[in-house]
């Protein structure tokens, strides 16, 4: 018995060590920093929970929480609908299906910040392709005014993210789709189920695990959104598109208030944990039912 316990610890030791060095220790440091006035240059001063209290009087922080949740709520279903549609199209033996699958998946291979830079120039009023198409169709006079209102800026950033991530989600969903034995669909059809009923009562329930994984990845990803707003909208117009990570970054590397940024990071960690927990509960309930 003793020997086995000892061996067990040995096997988990590397993972434990990595977790401690690269997660728990930095996390403890962040917690320690968050209790200080910790400028990047200059003297460090203990201030207790003043950083946490300051958040309540920080209008941009409160706005960034609201914005991040709105963004997550808007982008997740959009990605899912598009990815599911692509997956259904890409599933099967139609002509050129392999080619389309590859094409739809391709944007995934591009980094998020690279994709953002690409879109900045595609959206540019003078040299961008969207404005050129808009002008050719007579829809716009000079350029696509994607930065003149918060909604337009959000649509611009969301379009990029959907374009960028739908392919990856398609592959995830495709795996789920293809793991469903075709006999089940046949049986449903024999029982008189139409295409929609087949999808709703056979496909969806059997894909629960896949959906759970994809949802987890998508929601966590959107709560941590940064690149697209940093690069495409720069948080504008008039601070309409500042995500939580963006505000953390800003405080740490533009205002050099690293202590405050540490406190914000811990709050973000709590939000992500809560969101994950909520999803966990949601899916577990259904499994029990």
């Amino acid at each position: 018995m003793y020997r086995q316990g000892w061996l067990g610890w040995l096997f988990v030791a590397p993972a434990l060590l990595l977790t401690c060095v690269f997660f728990l220790w930095p996390l403890a440091l962040v917690g320690w920093m968050s209790l200080h006035n910790w400028p990047l240059i200059g003297r460090i001063r203990w201030i207790g929970i003043a950083n946490y209290r300051a958040m309540l009087n920080d209008p941009i922080f409160l706005q960034s929480v609201r914005f991040t949740l709105t963004y997550a709520a808007a982008i997740t279903p959009t990605i899912f609908v598009v990815a599911m549609a692509l997956a259904l199209l890409a599933n099967g033996d139609r002509r050129f299906v392999g080619l389309f699958r590859t094409l739809w998946f391709m944007p995934t291979a591009i980094g998020l910040s690279t994709a953002s830079v690409l879109w900045v120039w595609m959206l540019n009023g003078q040299v961008g392709i969207f404005a050129a198409i808009g002008r050719a169709l007579g829809l716009v006079e000079t350029d696509i005014p994607y930065l003149d209102s918060g909604t337009n800026a959000m649509i611009a950033a969301c379009s990029m993210v959907v374009w960028k991530t739908a392919g990856f989600n398609m592959v995830l969903l495709l795996v789920g789709l293809q793991s469903i034995p075709s006999e089940l669909h046949e049986a449903a059809r024999i029982d008189g189920a139409g295409a929609w009923q087949n999808f709703r009562h056979v496909t969806l329930p059997l894909m629960r695990r896949t959906l759970k994984l994809a949802l987890f990845l998508s929601i966590t990803g959107s709560l941590l959104a940064f690149d697209q707003f940093y690069i495409i909208t720069r948080g504008g117009p008039q601070n309409g598109t500042i995500s939580m990570v963006y505000w953390i970054y800003n405080n740490a590397f533009s205002s050099f208030r690293t202590g405050y940024a540490a406190a914000l990071s811990l709050v973000l960690l709590a939000v992500v944990l809560l969101a994950s927990l909520a999803q966990f509960m949601l899916f577990r309930d259904r499994e029990d039912a």
Binding site: G125, Q126, T142, D143, P145, Y146, L147, D148, R234, G236
Partner: peptide
């Protein structure tokens, strides 16, 4: 020039 509103400095000289 209407694009003045959204130009983040990219078109400062190209305009």
């Amino acid at each position: 020039l209407p694009s003045a509103r959204t130009d983040g400095g990219e078109n400062w000289t190209s305009s």
